[in-house]
C-alpha cells in the first residue's frame, strides 16, 4: 500500500499534464514502478537512519546504568537529567554555538559562493581550492593552530566567540560547496532581467538569487548545525570555561560508562524537534488552504 501511495506521489506531485501527451502503457507502468522503487528505497534508508535512534530512545528508559542490556523500565534518567545543571548548561551552550555558527556559516558560504560564481578576480581558482582546506585538515591540526592564532596573535579570550569562529571555519565550506552546485547552470539572464527592471545588484541578489538558492541554503544550514552540534576535537582547543559544550562533557564519560541521562537528553531533543517540525508543517499548510 505504502509502495503504491509513494509511487503516485512522486509522479503526480510535481509533474504537470501527465495525461496531455500520448504515452505507451508500459512506459507509464515502468515510470510508476521506478517511482515506487525509489519510495521503497527511501523508506529503507530512513529505517537505516533511525535504527540506532530507536535503540537510543529505548535505552533512555533502561534501569541499568550500562548502556548494553535491557534490565527493566525506568524513568530515573529523565528525573536525574532535569536535576543535572551541568549537562543542561552544556547542551544550551552547544545549541547557542550551533545556531550562531549556522547563521555565520550560511551567510559566509552563500555570499562566498555567489562571489566566486558571479565575479572574476585574480587567483579565483586558487581561492576555490582554499575553500576545501578546512574540510580536509584533520581536526586536531585545525584546533591547535586556531588555538595558537587566537591566544598568541589575536589575543582573544577563549570562549563563545572563539568557539563560534572555529566552528564557522569548518562549517562554511559545506554551505559553499552546496550553493555552488546549485548555482551551476543558473540562467545568467535571471540576474540581468532583475537589473533591467531597475534592481540594484544587491536587490537582484536578495530578491532573485537568494530565493532560487533557498533549497541549497537550507541544506547548508542543516549541515552546519549538525556539524557544529557534534564537534569535539576542534572545540576542546578553542573553547573556554564559560562555553563548555555537550561533546566536551560526553567524551570523557565513556570511561565510566556513558550516562543514560545522555540518552534521555537526546530523546527529548528529538521529540522536541519532531513536534516543532510537524507543528510548523501543519501551521504553514493550514495557512495555505
Amino acid at each position: 500500500m505504502i509502495w503504491d501511495n509513494l509511487g503516485c506521489m512522486t509522479i503526480d506531485g510535481d509533474s504537470h499534464g501527465v495525461s496531455n501527451h500520448p504515452r505507451f502503457g508500459w512506459q507509464v507502468t515502468a515510470a510508476r514502478l521506478q517511482a515506487g522503487l525509489f519510495g521503497f528505497w527511501t523508506a529503507l534508508v530512513f529505517a537505516f537512519l533511525y535504527i540506532p535512534i530507536i535503540l537510543l530512545v529505548v535505552f533512555s528508559f533502561n534501569s541499568s546504568r550500562l548502556n548494553i542490556r535491557w534490565e527493566g523500565f525506568s524513568t530515573r534518567w529523565y528525573g536525574e537529567l532535569l536535576g543535572n545543571k551541568v549537562l543542561i548548561d552544556a547542551f544550551q551552550n552547544s545549541l547557542l554555538v550551533a545556531f550562531a555558527t549556522t547563521i555565520l556559516a550560511t551567510l559566509l558560504g552563500t555570499v562566498g559562493a555567489w562571489m566566486l560564481h558571479r565575479y572574476k578576480f585574480p587567483y579565483q581558482r586558487a581561492l576555490g581550492l582554499l575553500i576545501f582546506i578546512p574540510m580536509v585538515m584533520p581536526e586536531v591540526l585545525m584546533g591547535v593552530s586556531l588555538l595558537v592564532l587566537f591566544v598568541q596573535f589575536l589575543h582573544l579570550p577563549l570562549g563563545f566567540l572563539t568557539l563560534t569562529i572555529a566552528h564557522t571555519t569548518f562549517c562554511f565550506p559545506f554551505v559553499l560547496v552546496g550553493v555552488q552546485a546549485r548555482l551551476q547552470g543558473l540562467d545568467p539572464f535571471l540576474e540581468e532581467a532583475a537589473m533591467d527592471l531597475g534592481a540594484t545588484p544587491l536587490q537582484a541578489f536578495w530578491k532573485v538569487i537568494v530565493p532560487y538558492l533557498m533549497p541549497a541554503i537550507f541544506s547548508g544550514a542543516l549541515m552546519s548545525f549538525t556539524l557544529s552540534l557534534d564537534e569535539y576535537i576542534v572545540s576542546v582547543f578553542t573553547t573556554g570555561a564559560q562555553s563548555q559544550t555537550l561533546p566536551l562533557k560526553v567524551y570523557g564519560m565513556a570511561k565510566v560508562g556513558l550516562n543514560p541521562q545522555l540518552n534521555a537528553l537526546s530523546s527529548l531533543f528529538i521529540l522536541v524537534t519532531f513536534l516543532f517540525a510537524f507543528g510548523s508543517y501543519f501551521l504553514t499548510n493550514n495557512k495555505k488552504t
Binding site: T226, L229, D230, L262
Partner: peptide
C-alpha cells in the same frame, strides 16, 4: 520530487538522527 510542502520536512528527518550525541 515529493510535493513541495513535504520536502523540508523530509529533509529535516534525514538530519535529525544526527542531532543526538555522536558517542551515544
Amino acid at each position: 520530487r515529493a510535493p513541495q510542502r513535504w520536502r523540508t520536512l523530509l529533509l529535516m528527518f534525514v538530519m535529525v538522527p544526527f542531532w543526538t550525541s555522536f558517542l551515544i
